[in-house]
């Protein structure tokens, strides 16, 4: 649990963000943690030196609404999460198509938990 945190549902995301924008919060960034079968998304905002976090979980494969029409700067972070975690965002203002940071040879979603299966020698 982070200080000054609020847990929300996916469908309230846009509404909560608009509220924050009207109150004058500055967008900092979004963090994503891979919890196995779901992602934990934390959105960080700042007002007068105090950080405010919004947290929600999405199952893998869910499409998250994009914040880039509310905060244009979110576009860059959302593209990065798309590259690194394979998250899909709907309504991205400038979509780099998964090529912002990584190239094809890196493979998809490198930041997700990767499992290496060792082949048994006997069989």
């Amino acid at each position: 649990m982070l200080d000054n945190e609020k847990i929300i549902e996916l469908q309230d995301l846009k509404k909560e963000t608009l509220l924050l924008k009207n109150q004058g919060y500055r967008y900092i960034t979004m963090s994503c943690v891979d919890l196995g079968d779901s992602f934990d998304l934390i959105y960080h905002f700042d007002k007068a030196y105090e950080i405010y976090n919004m947290r929600f979980s999405v199952a893998k494969g869910t499409i998250v609404p994009s914040l880039s029409d509310v905060y244009f700067c979110a576009m860059l972070t959302e593209n990065e999460l798309k590259d690194l975690f394979g998250l899909e965002f709907s309504g991205l203002v400038l979509d780099c198509g998964g090529n912002l940071l990584i190239t094809d040879e890196v493979g998809a979603a490198p930041m997700t938990k990767q499992y290496v299966v060792k082949a048994k020698e006997s069989e």
Binding site: T29, S31, V33, D34, H44, M75, L76, T77
Partner: peptide, 22 residues
């Protein structure tokens, strides 16, 4: 995000130039 072992669960860095590019 740490989980009590000697390895971190997640370390996320948001650097200032990332914020200045928009």
């Amino acid at each position: 995000k740490a989980n009590g072992t000697n390895h971190l669960d997640r370390l996320r860095v948001r650097t200032p130039t990332f914020a200045n590019i928009p």
